[in-house]
Each structure stands twice: as C-alpha cells, then as structure tokens.
Design a protein around this nucleic acid. Structure first.
Lengths: 163, 163
DNA sequence: TATTGTTATACTCTATAACTATA
DNA sequence: TATAGTTATAGAGTATAACAATA
C-alpha cells in the first residue's frame, strides 16, 4: 500500500499539533519552507560523520547496490544523477576500501559491473545506527504523532525524489 | 522526556493513512529510511539552480538575516554550523553582489555586522519561486493529504534542525 | 589572554572535455 | 559512429592553522 492509493486524511482527523496546523499551506509557500527545513536538517545529519567518512553518494551507492543488486557504472551514475566521472571516483573509493567490487560485464566488454561486497554490507549494517544516531535521538524525543508525520513524510519524499 | 523514557512507539489512536501506515516503525529504522529520503530529496532540490547560483549557506544566510535582522559573522557561522573562514567567504560573496552589507559593530571593534540589503531581500522574494519551482511542481501533483503530511513534517524537521 | 575575523592552504565532491576501448 | 568508462583539469565549498586587531 502506498500513499497514492491510500492517502492520509486531511484536516478533520489529523492529530493535533503539527499536522493540522499547516494543512492549508499552498504548494508554493510550502515548497519554500519545506526546502529550507530539508536543507537545514540534512546539513545537520551530514555533520554526523561515520568513521569511514563515506560521501553521501558513496553511501547511497552501497545502499542501492544492496537493495537492487549489481549495476553498471552508467546505471549508478544515472540513478544518483551524477556524471560518469564522479561515479568512477565514488566507486573507486568504495573498491579501494573493499566495500564494493568491480567486475567485467559478461557480454559487453565496455561495461563494468559494480556490486556491494560483504564488507560493504557489513559496513551498511554496522554503521547505520551510528550514522543515524543523531537523527534517531531526535526522533525518539518527539511525541508519537510527530514521529508518525515523519514516517509518512519519508514515503512522500522518496516518491518526490524518484520523480 | 528522552529516548529512554519514551520508546519509539506510536499512539494506537492515530489516524489511518500515511501517518498510521508507518506508525509502528521504530525510531532507529525510521531514522535510516528518513535520512536516505531526506538526502536524496535534498540532492534533487539542490540540483535546481537559480541564475545567481548562491550556495545553500548563502541562501540560508540571506534568509536568516531577513528573518531575524543583522548578525555578526560569528553568530552566522554558529547558526549555520560552519567555521568562521567559511562564513567569511560566504558573506563576501553576498557582499560582492550587493545582496548583503558589512558594517562595523557599534561597540566591539573586532566584530562585523552583516545585514541583508534591499537587493538581497528582492533576490529572496524574486528567486524563491524559481528555486522552489521543482519542488512546488511535485508538491502540486500530490494529493492534499500527502501535502498536509509534508507541511506537518516541515515543522517537525525545523525543530529537529534547531535542536 | 581570549575572542573576532581574515588569509593561506589543502581536501572533497562535482563538472566538462578529451581520450581509450568496445559495440 | 555511438556508447562505456577513465583521465585531466577546474571550480565550488568546506576545513584547519597561522595571523591581525581588538577586548
């Protein structure tokens, strides 16, 4: 079930507090406010570094490889919306640390298949809690209604990022 | 109220829909998913450049100066959580374009007061719609309930970023 | 001495352009 | 010719260290 088929209810039944308070805000104004909030929040999250100091792109690459399997460098670049040279660099950084592997494409000799290694998976598992510690601490301090709002927002934001 | 006394649980009386859908997701798991969604979404937003090509920090500086008035460079650096040299650079870029002004502090000769100029305010007003066009377009395509979720999330995220 | 801000310098991430290898 | 990927190079943003001016 996704939010497209089962939308959250608006005004009358939203929980008190943050949800109902801004329900009437127009898309244009909301975009401005939301963008500022997203950028500020993201900067705070990014400030919490893991020991390995992987870039956002590198973490995202490990994550997508873990989720949907080996991809070519071009596919990774398209997925992350960076140029091929940037992805070459990001993947090389992962491969140098043993977190990802590069292998020849079975049929097309031009292509390179990138996969997450076992060490990469372990890194994803092991460091997510540490990487997310800052955010999780704040989430835990929220009241349940606000946390539910963010859980819902997460799905909506993912769809927006995919669009 | 902290993470230990109030575990990441959700009130069963929450509404159905987007919020309720993920109501049981723990703070740790939610943190991971939310972080990925925030980072991906933010990267997409940032990819939409304005003509002036101000950095996130520069826009945020203009915005905060517009919102709460003149601040010293140190105060701006603390607020944006960057180091003083980075803020010097950001503010110089704004001042060079006439979007902000630098003036001597009335009592403390060491300090510099930074203020948004009229051109800076105009830039904020004029370019927000353009900067936010990408996001606003996606928001407009959402059903109202999902938009309400993001409006609520915006406030929660702002609080988190402030914490 | 401590604090504010700047300069010097380096690092990371990204991009474009030019190149190699393969289809 | 066209595509996949790499190398070379540059630009933006940030950081630390050293320094200047002021409190």
């Amino acid at each position: 079930m996704n939010a497209r088929t089962v939308p959250a209810q608006v005004d009358p039944s939203l929980p008190k507090g943050a949800g109902g308070r801004q329900a009437r805000q127009g898309a244009a104004t909301l975009a401005a406010d939301l963008r500022v909030a997203l950028l500020r929040c993201t900067r705070r999250i990014r400030a919490e570094k893991s020991d390995l100091e992987l870039s956002d792109t590198q973490y995202s690459v490990l994550s997508v490889l873990d989720r949907i399997g080996p991809l070519t460098l071009r596919e990774l670049a398209d997925h992350e919306r960076v140029q091929p040279p940037s992805m070459t660099r990001a993947v090389n950084g992962l491969a140098d640390r043993g977190l990802a592997t590069r292998s020849d494409h079975p049929v097309d000799g031009r292509q390179v298949l990138v996969a997450v290694s076992e060490a990469g998976r372990a890194e994803l598992r092991e460091t997510r809690r540490r990487r997310d510690a800052w955010l999780a601490r704040r989430l835990a301090e929220l009241d349940p209604a606000d946390r539910a709002v963010l859980a819902a927002a997460k799905d909506v934001l993912s769809r927006i990022a995919d669009s």
